[in-house]
């Protein structure tokens, strides 16, 4: 910059001479390195303007608190913000209503599912589709004269059921369900088409004391088997944990349908 401007002080009168010959203010242009009062004033003013401009530009960039906005702009801004807030509030309430509804339905659905599962478990045990375990008794009927009749077995099963037996099996092979039948071929006992070998072992799950009592009363299974007509022996043992592992395959239904 000094190089580019240096010729100017050296040629104060040559180039602008014609135009400035009658101008009394031609002198300051020549005294570039000796600033006159007017130059100083201009410098100060320029300095102030530049500083103000840059300050205001910086403040506008850093402005986040809406101080420089006009009142009408602020009012419009406030209006839009409050309407937006109203809209969001209503959205929140509708969403929370939906959430409550969904939570309620989920809870009731879960309860219904649990009830259904319990019901399904009970029905599966009753129909003999799954193995069952629990406290119960084992009844062993020793019948050396082979005089135990199907009728007697049916009575025994019925007594056990009356006493609350929930799952019954015979000889670890035949699960006793609603459709189980008993027959005899000469002295051979048959249950659900399976030959029942002697001694007959009946497992029943239920309250052990009640089940034992149901078999021991006068005129019940024990007294009948141990009478002189049959001449057998009944052994009853109670268990805290008894496993009934035999299963019953339900037949495919041809006519009945759930309604």
């Amino acid at each position: 910059m000094p190089e580019g401007l240096e010729p100017e002080p050296g040629t104060p009168l040559s180039e602008p001479g014609e135009r400035a010959s009658s101008d009394p203010r031609q002198a300051p242009r020549g005294t570039f390195w000796r600033p006159s009062l007017s130059q100083l004033i201009v410098a100060v003013v320029v300095c102030l303007v530049t500083a103000t401009a840059i300050l205001s530009a910086r403040q506008r960039q850093a402005d986040t608190n809406y101080q420089s906005l006009r009142r009408s702009d602020l009012v419009a801004l406030l209006d839009s913000l409050s309407s937006q807030s109203d809209r969001l509030d209503s959205e929140i309430s509708s969403l929370s209503r939906t959430k409550t509804k969904l939570e309620n339905s989920a809870t009731s659905q879960k309860a219904a599912q649990e009830a259904n599962q319990a019901r399904l478990n009970a029905l599966q045990v009753l129909s003999g589709e799954v193995a069952a375990q629990g406290p119960g008794i084992t009844v062993t009927i020793l019948d050396p004269q082979q005089r135990v009749t199907p009728q007697l077995l049916v009575d025994a099963i019925q007594e056990l059921r009356d006493a609350g037996a929930e799952a019954i099996q015979i000889n670890h092979t035949v699960r006793v369900v609603a459709s189980t039948w008993f027959d005899a071929h000469a002295t051979t006992l048959i249950a659900d088409g399976v030959t029942v070998q002697r001694p007959i072992v009946i497992d029943a799950i239920g309250d052990p004391a009640t089940l034992s009592g149901a078999l021991k009363f006068r005129g019940g299974l024990a007294s009948t088997v141990e009478s002189t007509q049959v001449g057998g022996t009944v052994l009853i043992s109670q268990h805290n944990q008894l496993l009934i592992g035999s299963l019953h395959d339900p037949p495919a239904l041809r006519y009945a349908r759930p309604s």
Binding site: Q39, V42, V44, V46, A51, I54, S56
Partner: peptide, 24 residues
């Protein structure tokens, strides 16, 4: 030259002074 110095000084003030123009 003094004017150029004034511009430079103004830029410096604007850049390094805290932006504290009165809000009004």
């Amino acid at each position: 030259m003094v004017v150029v110095l004034g511009v430079i000084l103004g830029v410096a003030i604007g850049l390094y002074a805290a932006p504290s123009l009165p809000a009004g």
